[in-house]
């Protein structure tokens, strides 16, 4: 393990009004590792993920990307433009895909490489084709998202995130809004990313995926990490009662 983790989360807290959603969460993700976050709805998993790339601003705590603090620079709040720059390093995949409907599939993938990284259209298109090939959707490049199935849309969303060559990928329940027969194609792509050494944090209800692919599993409860460890440990011999209850419900 290298000294500086790809992502270090230190005592993240988040409140919405009086509701405390995250009550101090800390963990490291090392380069090339996959960390799965499991837990009941409302346990704070998604909020935690959104705090990591600062779609939500944490109430307290800090996130470090390759040792660089996300929220502060030289002791002051990091300006929004700087946060935008750091967000490029974290590819985000949403439950609702969130493809841009007025752009083609390829257009979705190459938008940020062109507008944010300043790549030429030609270079970006080559990169885009390469990313679409990784999710097995090369032949859909000229289609609009509305013509694609949910599973295909989600794979395009993965390609769009990959096109920024992020240091890590964040998945926020990527298969939760898919029909069961479409989840496999997305999980297959994610397994391949993991095998290729992509650093990933995955919020998921797919226990099979979490068990097979993760290096570490975090079980969140009430805004805190209730249980963490290797998949074998968490799934095979959970220490906490709540985790055991949760797993017995989800591992039919």
């Amino acid at each position: 393990m290298d000294a500086i983790p790809a992502i270090r989360v230190v005592d993240i807290r988040k409140s919405f009004g009086t509701l405390e959603v995250l009550r101090g969460v800390s963990f490291d993700v090392h380069r090339g590792n996959v960390v799965s976050m499991i837990g009941a709805s409302g346990s704070g998993k998604s909020t935690l993920l959104r705090c990591i790339n600062r779609l939500e601003t944490p109430s307290a705590g800090e996130v470090y990307i390759d040792g660089e603090p996300m929220g502060a620079v030289e002791g002051r709040d990091r300006p929004l433009s700087e946060i935008n720059r750091m967000r490029r390093d974290l590819g985000m995949v949403f439950q609702q895909f969130n493809l841009w409907p007025h752009m083609t599939v390829l257009g979705n993938v190459i938008e940020a490489p062109i507008r944010v990284l300043g790549m030429s259209r030609k270079a970006a298109a080559a990169l885009g084709e390469e990313c679409l090939a990784r999710v097995y959707l090369s032949e859909k490049a000229r289609e609009y998202p509305a013509r694609l199935s949910g599973g295909q849309q989600q794979r395009v969303a993965i390609a769009r995130a990959l096109a920024m060559r992020p240091k890590a990928m964040l998945f926020d329940e990527p298969t939760s809004s898919l029909d069961p027969e479409l989840t496999d194609e997305v999980l297959t792509v994610m397994r391949e990313l993991a095998k290729a050494g992509t650093t990933m944090i995955v919020v998921t209800h797919e226990m099979g995926f979490a068990r097979d692919v993760s290096h570490r599993v975090l079980f969140l409860h009430n805004g805190q990490i209730e249980e963490e460890g290797s998949p074998a440990q968490v799934f095979g011999n959970p220490k906490s009662d709540r985790c055991r209850q949760f797993l017995s419900k989800h591992l039919q």
Binding site: N53, L55, L80, S81, N84, R85, R87, R88, L90, G91, M92, F94, Q96, N98, L99, W100, E111, A112, R115, V116, A157, R160, A161, A163, M164
Partner: peptide
Amino acid sequence: VPRGHREAGYSVGMSPVLVFGRI
């Protein structure tokens, strides 16, 4: 325009101006 469409823009590093103008 769904909030998520803007968030998808922010998460690939687009600025608010870009997100508004392009998405």
